[in-house]
């Protein structure tokens, strides 16, 4: 099917590659036949089939992650022309060429464009980004969520752990232990949920620990970069207020830890 459309045009790419974790990086140029409506992944798929550089040298196929191909799984994030974003929804027509592809270096690079986002998943565990409902008996229905609250909480729930906000944040790096914007916003989501709110002090305690909320330096890059338009900085400021209240409760003592 691909061969069917021959536009005679090409797409030029520069890819920053590395063969092993912590290995040497190198740049390789590729020239891929252009087809209308191409995304970055379709160019990468072509390179996978024909791993030949622009100057005709045989090379290894470029490695990257992908899954849903419709910007909901977050797996395919990479730095495209300097901006972290999803390669499945990055359309070639909208990018200036040569298109420069780099891995999101804020994460450990596994190989080429493939990164290990474990630190995000570990952060979600650390902040208890779930609603605990398991018990020894049926707890019954939880409280109802007001519709208007559900509507904005839904926006927060769109997070796909893609890591773009982490790459954009100047305070997330191997130099610091900051858990980053995405897991923080998830705390706000689960603390908003009427059943989740029953454990909100535990989640606040987690983000008031080392590497937590207080590491945010308000560069506000996260909210500018998030492909899902999640109001990350509003979440962070709201959590700052919740943490202020919690701090006083912790110190002066209160038997109302969760309401």
């Amino acid at each position: 099917m691909m061969e069917a459309v021959n536009t005679g045009k090409t797409v030029e790419l520069i890819i920053v590659r590395q063969d092993t974790e912590n290995g040497q990086t190198r740049e390789e140029k590729f020239s891929v036949p252009y087809r209308p409506g191409m995304n970055v992944i379709s160019a990468l798929m072509h390179i996978q089939k024909y791993p030949v550089t622009a100057d005709g040298k045989q090379t290894t196929p470029v490695t990257w992650d992908m899954n849903c191909l419709e910007e909901v799984c977050g797996a395919c994030s990479m730095v495209i022309n300097g901006r972290p974003q999803q390669s499945c929804s990055a359309l070639v027509d909208k990018l200036t060429q040569p298109i420069r592809l780099e891995p999101m270096k804020t994460f450990p690079v596994v190989r080429d464009l493939q990164v290990d986002r474990s630190r995000m998943f570990n952060a979600l565990k650390k902040v208890k980004a779930w609603v605990p409902i398991d018990g020894t008996y049926d707890l019954g229905e939880g409280p109802r969520m007001p519709e208007r609250k559900r509507q904005w909480a839904y926006e927060l729930s769109k997070c796909m752990t893609c890591g773009v906000c982490m790459e954009a944040c100047p305070n997330v790096s191997e130099k610091a232990s900051f858990i980053g914007p995405a897991p923080l916003s998830q705390v706000r989501l689960f603390n908003t949920h009427p059943t989740g709110a029953m454990n909100k002090d535990e989640r606040l305690a987690a983000i008031m620990g080392d590497g937590g909320l207080a590491n945010c330096g308000n560069s506000q890059n996260c909210v500018a970069a998030c492909p899902k338009g999640i109001p990350l900085t509003t979440s962070i400021a709201a959590l700052n207020r919740a943490a202020t209240v919690q701090m006083f409760k912790n110190f002066f003592g209160s038997d109302h830890m969760v309401d």
């Binding site: 954009a168 100047p170 305070n171 790096s173 130099k175 610091a176 330096g217 560069s219 890059n221 970069a225």
Partner: peptide, 18 residues
Amino acid sequence: TATNNTSRFSTFRNWAFR
């Protein structure tokens, strides 16, 4: 502990951060 990136994100807030 910050890794400045105003060349990639040149917004007012990121400059203020730096």
